[in-house]
Design a protein around this nucleic acid. Structure first.
Lengths: 141, 141
DNA sequence: CTGAGAGTGAAAGTCACTTTCACGCGTTTC
DNA sequence: GAAACGCGTGAAAGTGACTTTCACTCTCAG
């Protein structure tokens, strides 16, 4: 499946992303919302499209894309590695402690609450992370 | 400072915790609510009280205490190691991205919300984790 | 006392991730 | 076009948290 890159359209001020980084971005985007890929999985997919690509390039690419805000990095306790997903609306994550599957959950701390907490404690909040753990529908049965 | 162990009072059915595990429990308890110790820090403190104690014993002890629900384990993205704190009321954590300091924040997802999410998605929620990141009062100035 | 099982410490292993470094490729500058 | 430059690249070694292994020791019920 051939996919045209939409990077320059998204951010015209940043037209030149190295092609390997575009490839990585492409892979994460194609995974779709709700999918969570580890660097190893992304590397495997990248290898198929560009044989010879190095592991370090994938790590570097993910780091860069994360800093640019083009992909989201997700650390979940219990999962052995970080996972990456396309950027999307703020949401929480649910991890099944039995099968390890990670699911998106539509929940975010109310911004009013965030403001109140920040004010009360004197800090500024840049990001919020909400993770639930339990048993998914499949494993519960 | 000599401290009497309160273990057996807390859980009379589990009167026999190995003394090294009691030591570790003691250290975490004494750190107080709001403190967050890494295994390395706990090991250092343990060494002073019981020279010769091994690293693996500390890890094993923390694991055991965590499973028994006597201490809380906390993984924070960005922090290099896990941290441990005494059990206490549910709360969220704030981590300063500049100095790495971790602070307790009195916030919990409303239980009604939890129930609603669980029902809607068909999973059961055992634990919830909320982490904020930003700049603490000291670093912001 | 005695034997089984739990606890212990040292050391080696594992694994995600980071760093280093020499090379290459494209871009810019005469 | 040719030389100079710099970012991107891949291989490989390094790092550090945690885990596993294993032989030894301690504890305690019988």
């Amino acid at each position: 499946m051939k996919v045209t890159f939409t990077l320059s359209r998204r951010n015209p001020a940043e037209p030149k992303l190295p092609k390997n980084y575009q490839l990585i971005y492409d892979i994460v985007e194609q995974s779709g919302l709700g999918r969570h890929l580890t660097p190893a999985e992304i590397y495997t997919k990248a290898l198929k499209r560009r044989p010879g690509i190095g592991f370090s390039t994938v790590y570097r690419g993910l780091e860069r894309l994360r800093d640019l805000g083009l992909v989201s990095e997700l650390h979940v306790p219990g999962a052995e590695a970080a996972t990456y997903e396309p950027v999307g609306p703020k949401h929480a994550h649910f991890r099944c402690s039995e099968c390890g599957e990670i699911e998106d959950v539509p929940y975010a701390v109310p911004s009013r609450t965030l403001k109140a907490l920040a004010l009360e404690h004197g800090f500024t909040i840049d990001t919020e992370r909400v993770t639930f753990e339990g048993h998914c529908a499949d494993c519960a049965s």
